[in-house]
Amino acid sequence: MARSPLVDRLRASAPQISVGVLTADWLTLGSQLEILESAGVELLHFDVMDGMFCPMLTMGAPVVAGLKTRLLKDVHLMIEDPLSKLDAFVAAGADIITVHAESTRHIHRVLQALGKMTNANDSNRGIVRGIALNPGTPLEVLEPLAGEFELVLMLAVNPGWGGQKFIASTCDRVKRLREIVRDTALICVDGGVTRDNIGSIARLGADIIVTGSAVFDGKAPLENARVMTGALR
């Protein structure tokens, strides 16, 4: 399966943040997205939860489609049996789609199907296929999926809600993951990211770091975004 050209673009600008829209002020969402763009953010992260795979129920494909932005749409599907839902999120303009290894018996089939789909924004740039691992999932599950993913999302909290504390064992898991994927896939860390720890997370070798409430704290989103992107440099 051909690799998405977006992978090279994302690697060239790594490390970078992907900002979760869930914690933004939705009454002023347009201006919130403009803040991210002015701060140099490239990725907008959508936490899609179905209330079954994890406790919360958040958003679906119509919300992803409805947000008009120049930012790349980074869609994290925390849902049961995602295969039948892929078409809707691709049509909604997803540039990255990440599915959970734990979400279905047939994760290989899901990744294969995603690899055959066309980016609705630009047919030439492809869709980055991501595989996500919960904190308790062994890294060995990646081995039989080799060649079918371009990004690995390492959850540093248990999925379901924001504001959780970063799980310390994630550091060793990311180091091991670097040895497993080497240059074949991007590494993403998601959960418990703050202004205080983002620099140390980047030094682990993460290409993309997901953050939400640490940016959209209701006080200084522009300053927060600039501080966090600056910490990566």
Rank of each mutant, 00 (worst) to 15 (best):
T98I: 10
D87Q: 15
V75F: 14
D87P: 09
H100K: 00
V90K: 02
A101Y: 12
K85D: 07
G93N: 08
S84Q: 15
D95N: 12
M78G: 06
D81S: 13
G93C: 11
G93R: 05
K73E: 15
P82E: 07
V75P: 08
R105I: 04
H108Q: 14
T104Q: 02
D81T: 05
H100L: 02
E102K: 01
K73W: 09
V99F: 06
E102I: 10
V99Y: 06
H106M: 11
I97H: 03
D74W: 07
K85M: 08
I97P: 03
E102G: 04
E80F: 00
V75D: 02
I79R: 00
I107E: 02
H108C: 03
D81F: 01
L71A: 09
E80L: 09
K73I: 08
A91D: 08
H76D: 03
V90R: 03
T98M: 08
S84C: 07
A94Y: 05
L71D: 08
I96Y: 09
D95L: 13
L71Y: 12
D95M: 15
L86N: 12
I79T: 07
D87F: 12
S103F: 00
M78L: 11
L72F: 10
I96R: 10
V99P: 02
L86D: 15
T98P: 05
T104I: 09
K85C: 05
I79C: 03
V90P: 04
